[in-house]
Amino acid sequence: MPLAIETHHLRKVFHGRPAVEDLNLEVAQGEVFGFLGPNGAGKSTTVKMLLGLTHPSAGVARILGQPIEDLEVRRQVGFLPELFRFHDWMTGRDFLRFHGQLYGMETADLERRIPEALELVGLAGRERERIKGYSKGMQQRIGLAQAILNRPKLVILDEPTSALDPIGRREVRELIAHLKAEGTTVFLNSHLLSEVELTCDRVAIVNKGRVIQSGNLAELLNPHLEAELRVDKVTPALRNALSGLARILEENGERLTLALPSEDTLPAVAEAVVHSGTKLYALTPRRESLEDLFVTLIEGGDS
């Protein structure tokens, strides 16, 4: 099965200034992929190159194994632009009809699919109204409906929840889970890290037009597992017992901050503490959040 998205040394220069430097990316089919980075990191430019809206200065991008110029591939891709502005003189239904026709969907299939898509984005019953009268959140929802209308294999969502309230955001998370359950690949461009943490299987973090970190979300966050240990007294015997299991990052009286290779080490640490004759008051794992990782990476890259 070809990769959903792959780029090799993708580069885009605007007026002598590189927006995307040298971007290599692989997204397998069926995964929910988070594409993260600070403002101006080249995320939107990358997305536009993936979709053929912007032409790369160098490098290659392939969607489902083919260049995006391939119309057959385009038929299998859905896209919600970041600046979701649509032809607002249309009603929601006419808008979906128009985009369904652009996808080349058959009329009967399209008429069946429109109510489904409206239902999935929570707009059922509003399709006869003009988009002009929709709230921002509703406009983003109709954009989402447009992006999933053709039952795509790959959905690219550029900041899909920017105009949504917390309930809307949760609904989009559910929609993404639904798409994943159907086997759809979702490429999520977002700087809402908590959203990404909740929805994505894998992420890539970009800065200055390069991927600076990518991988399985759990693996990326795991090596940074920290635990706080509180004992009655820090003794050499305790230090001895901990060595080989964990690294002491910080010492503050009876409190130690430990760096652990993984969560599985926690029981061994507890056992070692007890065996060394020290009294154990607390052992609290503190998982680094995606936000911590993000800030570390971006600021580390800047210095």
Partner: peptide
């Protein structure tokens, strides 16, 4: 300018 092209051009249309 309005951005409506961004949803149209990625469709299967030359």
């Amino acid at each position: 300018d309005s951005g409506t092209l961004q949803a149209v051009l990625p469709k299967p249309i030359r």
